[in-house]
Design a protein around this nucleic acid. Structure first.
Lengths: 170, 170
DNA sequence: CCGTGATCGTTGCGTACGCAAGGACCCGAA
DNA sequence: TTCGGGTCCTTGCGTACGCAACGATCACGG
């Protein structure tokens, strides 16, 4: 009976069909959904997905403002990347900069009134998109399982204090 | 008993804890793994992850060569993006271009001997990485479930003929 | 009080990518 | 045959990002 394989694969053997479906499926599903959500958000509200994320985190933070470094950690962007992203949003009037009294090095990014309005409009689109493309494919129980799966995967993805303050709301 | 909520969420309501774990977990897990795999591959073999993908698809294709457009579809890159990626790999001697006899518009990208050697060396690293960071966290049965999940999500991600020729091997 | 090392935000530079336009070519219908 | 529409690859241009270096500031030990 040579059909029984050694259970633990040698770690350098090519991925079998099952492993490929799990791994490549993740890559493709992620790419597919992100592309679709980004295009939709851009088409309807003129917002790139990254911008939406920033506005969202700020909206859910106390006083609608966040330290630059915390924001960068939350949206998985380098500090320089965030600097320039905030530059753009400031130019478009969606956020403002505010110096930090307790730490003269630091800076806050604050959501403006217009930023809040823009976010509110975009939120419905984005949430509907996430539900339509992703969440609606799974039962609540399956969603729980997926959540568990990610926690098993994360080596600590956002490891240290994860996203310190404001990750609760959406 | 106001603790019983209307089962189908209004589609524009904020994501609840369970939905957040499933959705944001996916985003973070994907980012975390890709960043780690890319860094590892770059450190050990000087290859970006995108390059690895191209070499891999070519390696598994008949005659170690693929049409540019098919390759672009497989690795989810725009045609212009692929043109320049192949430019770089050609400069580094990992692939060569070859004109297509049956269609004078077309071009093949062919894996060179050096490209094959480089890929072979990198393959062990990458496969080990994928197993260590992802596959090893799940039982075979769970991997099957994940694969099923992605198929439910794909609106057809790689829709039309998906990846025509060569997606079987890894 | 004064270093010393770490942290914060910014900037210069290089890289990777997408979109739109262009030239070469294929194919099917008039 | 010729023509019109579509496909393939490339190129010019603009954008987004990361890394490394910088100045300003903080925290802390002597």
């Amino acid at each position: 009976m040579s059909t029984v394989e050694p259970p633990p694969s040698p770690s350098s053997a090519p991925l079998d069909e099952r492993e490929l479906r799990a791994w490549r499926g993740l890559l493709r599903a992620h790419a597919s959904m992100c592309k679709a959500l980004d295009a939709e958000l851009e088409a309807v509200h003129g917002l790139p997905l990254t911008t939406y994320e920033v506005l969202m985190y700020m909206h859910d933070a106390p006083d609608r403002k966040m330290r630059m470094c915390d924001l960068a950690d939350c949206i998985l962007l380098s500090r320089s990347g965030l600097t320039r992203l905030i530059d753009r949003l400031q130019r478009d009037g969606l956020v403002a900069r505010q110096s930090c009294t307790s730490d003269a090095r630091g800076a806050y990014a604050v959501l403006t009134e217009e930023g809040a309005k823009t976010l509110e409009a975009a939120r419905a689109t984005h949430l509907a998109g996430v539900r339509r493309l992703f969440l609606s494919r799974f039962t609540p129980a399956e969603q729980e399982l997926l959540g568990d799966a990610w926690e098993r995967v994360m080596p600590g993805a956002c490891t240290p204090g994860a996203c310190a303050g404001p990750p609760p709301g959406c």
